[in-house]
């Protein structure tokens, strides 16, 4: 699916990276532990998380991820959004909880 479909499925707000919404994605992961993302993730292109600090964007950048979804209605501060913009990473915010958001994407064909 495309990132645009993720936006629709999660009823998400686009915080930055609007120009990348038609990028195709195939896999995602959900975690609040960046150490685990760095340890276990392989080629996932979307990160769903409830963490808001700049290291979430850094972690995504090191893993070549394309999109971060902040769950539970969370929004990072502007410097974090600026960093993502600079790195070409799409930031989304959804009211849904981590488990629900992951479940919706999974049942619509996004792999782990």
């Amino acid at each position: 699916m495309t990132i645009r479909e993720v936006v629709k499925l999660l009823d998400a707000e686009i915080l930055c990276g609007e120009e990348h919404l038609d990028t195709e994605i195939h896999t995602a992961c959900g975690s609040d532990m960046m150490s685990d993302v760095l340890a276990y993730v392989k080629d996932q292109s979307v990160l769903l998380t409830g963490l808001l600090n700049p290291q979430v964007v850094r972690t995504a950048e090191m893993m070549d991820m394309l999109c971060i979804v902040f769950v539970r209605g969370k929004r990072p501060e502007q410097p974090v959004i600026d960093l993502a913009e600079e790195k070409g990473i799409v930031l989304l915010s959804t009211e849904k909880r981590l488990f629900v958001a992951c479940g919706i994407l999974y049942t619509h064909g996004l792999g782990g």
């Binding site: 609040d32 532990m33 960046m34 150490s35 685990d36 340890a39 963490l51 600090n53 290291q55």
Partner: peptide, 15 residues
């Protein structure tokens, strides 16, 4: 609470 300190840093560096 910042998402680090899971004890995976050094093992990851080795990996």
């Amino acid at each position: 609470s910042l998402g680090f300190g899971a004890g995976m840093g050094l093992p990851n560096m080795k990996k």
